[in-house]
Amino acid sequence: MKANELDILIIPGYTGADGHHWQTRWESRLSTARRVEQAEWSKPVREDWVKRVVQAAEQAEKPIVLVAHSLGVPTALHALPHIRHKVKGAFLVAPPDVANPDIRPKHLMTFGPYPRERLPFPSVVIASRTDDFCDFAVAEELAKDWGSLFLDAGEAGHINSKSGHGPWPEGLMVFAQFLGKL
């Protein structure tokens, strides 16, 4: 499918995606992309965040592709029981380990546990070997459980603007290939 045949829901994580973040840049480049806005970016509440994804999906007029980063990943997955019939695919980047009590901030755990069943649509999980919010092996296991294509981003930190992934052209190329296979 082509991007203009889809509604692309950008689902940022904790504190949102700043102006340099790849999600913000993609949102401005992809005509059918729109951000799922949260009332409290720095005080995430699972039920509220999930509700916002469901509301955004209900407003979609085309099939949906989810583009989630960090805390946006469990948010998107917890919304699936309500929106799966509209979702054509998911592009999941830097999923945090919501089961690890040693990872800060602590509120990450309130978004767990992850659903572990196979996703009913194509998906990609991209993870870094140096992400402070998730051990690489945990991300790989999640991708396996979800039936997702797993891509190794190397030593890329949390794959955000802080780790130097502002435009992230490699990610956009992978995303374009992913859309082409839907």
Rank of each mutant, 00 (worst) to 15 (best):
K181A: 15
L9T: 02
P105Y: 13
A143C: 05
F150N: 02
R118L: 12
L30V: 14
T24Y: 13
A139G: 13
V125E: 01
W26Y: 06
Q23R: 06
A90H: 04
S28C: 05
S161M: 01
A57P: 08
K181W: 02
A137H: 14
E5G: 11
D135V: 13
S148D: 00
K86V: 04
S148W: 01
P105Q: 12
G16A: 11
P44T: 05
S70M: 09
I103Y: 11
D135I: 12
K86L: 14
P63A: 09
T32W: 08
R46T: 04
I159E: 00
E58T: 07
L92M: 12
A60S: 15
F175N: 03
A127W: 06
E47R: 13
S123Q: 03
E117V: 12
I64R: 07
H82T: 08
V36A: 10
A139P: 01
S123Y: 06
L172V: 03
C134K: 05
I8F: 07
P74R: 05
A156L: 03
S161E: 06
K162T: 00
R35N: 04
P113G: 12
A76S: 15
I8L: 15
W26H: 02
F121V: 01
S163K: 05
A79R: 06
R118I: 01
V65I: 15
P122T: 04
F133I: 04
P169C: 13
P122M: 05
I159Y: 00
G164L: 10
I126R: 08
G16T: 02
P95D: 04
A176W: 03
R116Q: 14
K86M: 11
G166A: 15
I83N: 11
P44G: 08
H165M: 13
F175G: 04
P120F: 12
G154C: 10
S42Y: 09
T75I: 10
E140Y: 03
R46Y: 05
E27L: 12
Q177H: 13
V98P: 09
R116D: 01
R35Q: 04
V98E: 02
R129F: 08
A153I: 05
L30F: 09
P120A: 14
I64Y: 12
E61K: 15
A176D: 11
A94R: 03
H69Y: 01
D7Q: 07
D131T: 02
K144W: 09
L66E: 04
S148V: 04
A94L: 09
I83K: 09
F150E: 00
H21L: 10
G157E: 01
V138F: 15
V50H: 08
R118E: 06
I103A: 07
L30W: 15
A68W: 06
S42H: 11
G171H: 07
I64K: 06
I10C: 03
M173C: 12
G166P: 02
N160H: 12
V73D: 00
G89R: 01
G166T: 12
K88Y: 05
P167F: 11
R25V: 12
D131M: 08
C134S: 14
L92Y: 06
D132W: 10
A156N: 02
D102V: 14
